[in-house]
Design a protein around this nucleic acid. Structure first.
Lengths: 208, 208
DNA sequence: TTGTTCTTGAAACAAGTGTATCATACAAAT
DNA sequence: ATTTGTATGATACACTTGTTTCAAGAACAA
């Protein structure tokens, strides 16, 4: 069942009310704001909206309407632990690194961190990662891990070149294939002992 | 005056209550949760906390306690209004576009939106914007505007080519210079009447 | 001591508020 | 035409809840 016109007005009113006042409206607030003459009509629509999963209420509790779309509104504080550049291994957080005060802390919603744990951020220095469409000044979000699945993008330390690079990793027979995000570029092949996965890249953030 | 022991307990209780239930406690909820026998004591402490600036309440309004520390925590809800591709103009929001339920809504902190107003998001379709280090599937954050300062990145509609592109814009004598983010690429020059700024690019978001 | 201020307490009021009940109107389906 | 489901409406009840009032103990300085 679709969202009717009146219920859409009600939903939008609840959104606006929450944004402006910081707490939920009452049925009478909604009636006033949506040109509905009586609480019972609002009640009826709220029941429907709740049955459809758009909102949640605690019975008998005043101003307890919550929007389902805002339920998982988690904010994570992601430490910015330093920079990532071609010629140096990336900072890998240790137990005490987390405890110390980071350079800066990014406040990110779970929408961005995808709810992942053990995430930290690094600022890109230089243009060595343009083959991953990562520019100078971008922020990469890294999840601490030493293993990745095939096809995932990882921060990989190349022992021979003494360089870090962002590539899709594929485990092949007797070798590791590192595939640039840029499809126009050729993959590179390494012996497993010559590469070291330092973390999984879960996102990139660019502020202009 | 410092925060007394009891008031600190009350503050922590309000924090926990808000996190767990999504709406504010009543004076009686607080009394129950902090082993206070009567609403009037809670009322007294809330008055003090409000005078000290730790909380805010709307008089006479139930469950209207708000934590000052969370007032400027800044989550913006950015509507994902569609896609951006080379061959089609980008969707420009109108007053009624904002009112309808968007395809999806991104929840972003002000850290990401930089506190800007009138921001919406578009998902990139295709690899036509790799010269701006923007890959297929990336999300670009656009602030609605028709003018940009020199050096800012804009979503520009090229009337002759019938294409949209992301470029740094420079106003020069009698012409517009469009500079790719990729420094290895050459700028393009247009007559002012042949280009149309459709919005300012304030960020790029890539989820992997 | 005395006085002052802060804190805790009990009780009650009045208004805000979720909810139920009954009723009407309208459109679509049978 | 009848039924069914949905949207709207008026009214009232009972509980929730912010607030007030009066009172008393606790901490502390003069």
């Amino acid at each position: 069942m679709a969202v009717s016109n009146t219920r859409l007005r009600i939903l939008n009113f609840i959104r606006k009310f929450l944004d402006e006042r910081g707490y939920a409206p009452t049925v009478r607030d909604i009636a006033r704001g949506c040109n509905i003459s009586t609480p019972s009509v609002v009640q009826h629509h709220l029941n429907t909206l709740e049955r459809q999963g758009y909102i949640h209420r605690d019975p008998e509790v005043f101003r307890s309407i919550q929007l389902a779309e805002r339920k998982r509104e988690g904010i994570s504080r992601v430490p910015l632990l330093g920079t990532i550049a071609a010629g140096e291994p990336i900072p890998v957080p240790t137990s005490d690194t987390w405890a110390t005060i980071p350079e800066e802390t990014l406040q990110l919603t779970d929408e961005v961190t995808q709810g992942k744990k053990g995430v930290y951020a690094l600022k890109v220095k230089g243009i060595s990662m343009i083959d991953a469409f990562v520019d100078d000044g971008d922020i990469v979000l890294i999840q601490q891990t030493s293993t990745v699945e095939d096809g995932e993008v990882a921060a990989v330390w190349l022992k021979i070149e003494q360089e870090v690079t962002l590539k899709k990793v594929y485990h092949e027979a007797g070798r590791i294939r590192l595939q640039p995000a840029n499809r126009q570029m050729e993959p590179m092949y390494y012996k497993p002992e010559d590469v070291e996965v330092q973390g999984k890249v879960i996102g990139v953030l660019r502020k202009l």
